[in-house]
Nucleic acid binder design. Structure first.
Lengths: 165, 165
DNA sequence: CACAATTCAATTGTGCACAACTAAGTAGTA
DNA sequence: TACTACTTAGTTGTGCACAATTGAATTGTG
């Protein structure tokens, strides 16, 4: 009976395929919801995350924002430029280390951050998701990410995760 | 004692924040791994998903590919053009309905699809993830996506999910 | 001190996701 | 049949993710 020799292993691999696709799909669906919720605030979700990080931590160098959000300068530089153009953040080259650029919220940015948090809170609350299940999901995602990071080299010193608000 | 009136509700909202960010992070980490695995095959992960859908279902109209992968023509048109330029797919306007464009794998595309599946299988297997946990995770992601779709309007008739290989 | 290696932000180029719109074909209906 | 709806791909424009490179500043070491 050589019919099912690698069936279990095959299923496993199929499953991992499913998970990667399901992950992307869920992420995009969530992003779509949050995009809608933030439209009125005139910012994108990645921009919101930056405002949130600055709200949480105060003035931060670009490098640190990148660690918190797992983004590099190729993504952050133009994003921060847009936020600065919108008058939400201010960038100043550090006096201690001229290579570094410190980013801080303007008054307008602080207000926008608060308003955006409120909008996303209302949006998330309306989903009526099960908190216990979300907690389990969050744990699984964390472990999965850690495992993936271990394989690929992964992220650099994320320190305190961003969204501890 | 008005100290903890909305604490539970607050925690819930924080958690949902966590989950959206964790989702994006895990998705990007997985994408990064698969990108590395596919580098040798000269295709990206979204391109791989198209090849996979065509391998599974045979010739498909662009519309159907979009339903399977939840992508619109703004994403698919240029992506398919790149695949066609690479000689992996062929596009032909349908005779029955001149609006529709049918996409099918070339011989080269079929080979590339097979090779890519092998590469991703090996990559996924090396992670050593727990199948039971993956199954649970997949179910949670599916339910979450369904819930999000219900709120935002969601996806259009995905039919058979793509990654049923 | 001089010089090599490293760090940090920015830039360039590619590809994906998505919104808005266009062009062309089809279907339904007065 | 003429005319309106709708459908299907494609195009344009914006923003994000990421690889690779550049330039300037700092650090480490001889």
């Amino acid at each position: 009976m050589p019919t099912q020799p690698t069936a279990t292993a095959e299923d496993l691999l199929r499953l991992e395929h499913h998970v990667c696709f399901a992950l992307q799909t869920a992420s995009r669906a969530f992003g779509s919801l949050y995009r809608d919720a933030l439209r009125e605030q005139q910012i994108t979700y990645p921009q919101y995350l930056v405002l949130l990080a600055l709200t949480e931590h105060g003035e931060l160098p670009v490098k640190r924002i990148g660690e918190l959000l797992r983004l590099d300068s190729g993504t952050l530089s133009p994003l921060l430029k847009r936020l600065e153009t919108a008058g939400l953040v201010q960038r100043t080259r550090s006096a201690q280390d001229e290579r570094s650029v410190d980013v801080k919220l303007t008054a307008k940015g602080a207000t926008r951050s608060t308003d955006s948090q409120r909008a996303l809170r209302a949006c998330a609350a309306s989903l009526g998701l099960d908190p216990a299940e979300l907690q389990v999901l969050q744990g699984m995602l964390q472990r999965l990410t850690d495992r993936l990071d271990a394989v690929t080299g992964g992220a650099v010193d994320p320190g305190t995760p961003v969204a501890d608000n």
